[in-house]
Design a protein around this nucleic acid. Structure first.
Lengths: 117, 117
DNA sequence: ACACTATTTGGCTATTTTGCCAAACAATAA
DNA sequence: TTATTGTTTGGCAAAATAGCCAAATAGTGT
């Protein structure tokens, strides 16, 4: 893997990483519906103003959201909405994972039953 | 946001987080082509056996890959290939980001030029 | 039984991330 | 001008992550 390719993987991973936090993922989904100022998020999330601002900065730095100052507020919008198209697949991952956990529990109790007989 | 919804966002974010590391993202893309044992990755990545094993464990824990022991080797495979479908969009994010950086540089030098006149 | 190979795990340190508080900044209102 | 509101930034401490080494584990072959 040469230097360019490595840099490319780092850039791509950074995008995933930015979405890899529940609050930021939630913010991104909210921004898919419509733009929001920071204060609107602070109301809905139980977190400090500075915390929300930092999360938004992470998303902005990753290139996922953009911001625009209007009056006293800074409005954030989703720059690349397609980034959330994978959500159905992500949900499929979670479902599959949940299912395999259920299977594991079932197999374990089967073993126990067999062990008892 | 109630407890269930919060847990749902945490689970979804965990999937993104798992892909949010260049090595793990590279591994996932390799696994899209075909299954691999750990040793094959160790050869290609310049990292310790234990490091690679841990990265694979993270992907497995997130539900993205599965593993199967055959003989002396453990083979990993991509459980949910659709997770990489978003890659073209991720690349679009990077392109857009790169472009906005170029624009910023251009605007800055325009300002300088105007300032000089 | 022994040695050998592939993999995981425990333990450690260095680095990064998170989230809060307080302070700084910016735009508006009085 | 001062006060006020919305936002960002500096600084800090707690927690999580990454990556290495060494030890443990599991399966194979002798």
């Amino acid at each position: 893997m040469d230097k360019n390719e490595k840099a490319f993987y780092e850039a791509k991973a950074a995008v995933f990483k930015a979405l890899g936090h529940p609050t930021r993922l939630w913010i991104a989904e909210e921004l898919k519906k419509k733009e929001h100022c920071v204060c609107e998020f602070v109301e809905k999330i139980n977190a400090d103003f500075s915390t929300v601002s930092r999360h938004l900065a992470v998303l902005k730095h990753a290139g996922i959201v953009g911001d625009e100052k209007r009056g006293m507020n800074v409005f954030y919008h989703l720059k690349v909405p397609c980034i959330l198209n994978s959500m159905t697949c992500v949900e499929a991952v979670i479902d599959a994972q949940l299912q395999s956990q259920i299977d594991m529990i079932n197999n374990k109790s089967d073993t126990n039953i067999n062990g008892r007989i």
